[in-house]
Design a protein around this nucleic acid. Structure first.
Lengths: 209, 209
DNA sequence: GCCACGATGTATCGTTACGATACATCGCTC
DNA sequence: GAGCGATGTATCGTAACGATACATCGTGGC
């Protein structure tokens, strides 16, 4: 169950793992994390939060300190802060450890990668290699197709396909570098210490194509 | 009206402009054209065709020669071949000439670019520059955000964002080269002669991120 | 001969994600 | 003290998609 939106689930869980947060902040952090283009809609986020609530993976956090607020105890306006439950932490750890096609697909890979700092080195390499292999499969197919059509398409179509090809080739090289680094610096810091506190930021998503 | 799916509409119209085609073939051609990842579903294509039919932009083509079929007149199995109507051609030309935000957005740009061979030089430059400017706006925002968070995120998040940044920078350079070419080779072949006949091919779509 | 299987082909249904939107409060500036 | 942009929660209509069903063709194996 809950096959769809697994990437979003993981992103939310991972961010709440760092610190409790409310929906609005969560949206910004998710956009910053895997942003560059498609912006996460509330129509996607809130239903997701509801489902996670139902499944008991997250829960409202009633103990909110309102730190930084000048007036002291002055009530901020109504907001719902969520925090991870024990089940949520367990489920997230489970998501982190799993490496399969679900970690290599386009949307999902980014989320997995974003939480590499909490992933063990073995899984990291497996995910990176899976991703690279998948891209290379595609490259092979595209190269064949390109060779077959090369002389029959106009120069713009050709340029577009060529540019796409080079983009993927570039990503493969990037992955290879990461894999090498991972292998050579074997067994270094698997988990980074959490930063002081979440901050806001904004980015846009890049589609490249 | 018909704001959504404008990219798909344009792709279908443009492909049918080259040669009449049936749905199955159309799907393959569209995937090859702006493929690399997301695959066009029949659940998307057929409703689109229906709407274009309703709007009178395409029509069933009853005069099908079945060339290449060995048995001569032997009937191929049932299939619906679509062709552009006069209104369709006019509408397509209109889509080609328009350059605005709708030509710069992620999905739409590819389609516009794919039909550059039928677009006049002036519009080509306007679209390319619009696209580049949009990407540079994003870049600026991302660079600021990156500078603000640089020291507070783990190296994997940083690597991911860095790679995304470089991908977009690379695309900007690509666009600049195209613009230069367009300006220097001013007024060259605006329209390429159509190729003999459509052929099949298959590719996947690349998302890069 | 015929049967299995993959490619070709059209079509719809249920779910999901998302854009648009509504509504409310806060804090700022003019 | 009014206007306005940021902060916040929430839902609704619909376009897009994955899955699936169904049918025919070509072919290769037995």
């Amino acid at each position: 169950m809950a096959k769809r939106g697994a990437a979003l689930d993981m992103a939310v869980l991972g961010l709440l793992h760092e610190a409790p947060m409310h929906g609005y902040e969560l949206r910004k952090r998710v956009n910053a994390l895997l942003g560059w283009g498609r912006v996460l809609s509330y129509g996607t986020l809130y239903p997701c939060l509801k489902q996670l609530l139902r499944n008991g993976l997250i829960a409202p956090d009633t103990t909110q300190t309102l730190s930084g607020s000048p007036g002291g105890i002055t009530g901020r306006r109504a907001r719902i802060v969520y925090k991870l439950t024990a089940e949520g932490k367990e489920h997230f750890a489970q998501l982190l450890a799993q490496s399969g096609p679900s970690s290599w697909d386009d949307d999902t890979f980014d989320v997995h990668f974003a939480f590499f700092a909490r992933t063990d080195a073995q899984t990291r390499v497996r995910i990176l290699e899976g991703r690279r292999n998948r891209l290379e499969e595609r490259l092979e197919g595209v190269r064949v197709a390109l060779a077959r059509t090369r002389e029959r398409v106009d120069k713009y179509t050709l340029a577009l396909q060529q540019h796409g090809l080079e983009s993927v080739e570039r990503e493969v090289r990037w992955l290879n570098e990461l894999i090498d680094t991972e292998r050579s610096g074997a067994g270094h810091d698997a988990v980074a210490p959490p930063r002081s506190r979440p901050r806001r930021s904004q980015r846009r998503q890049h589609p490249i194509k």
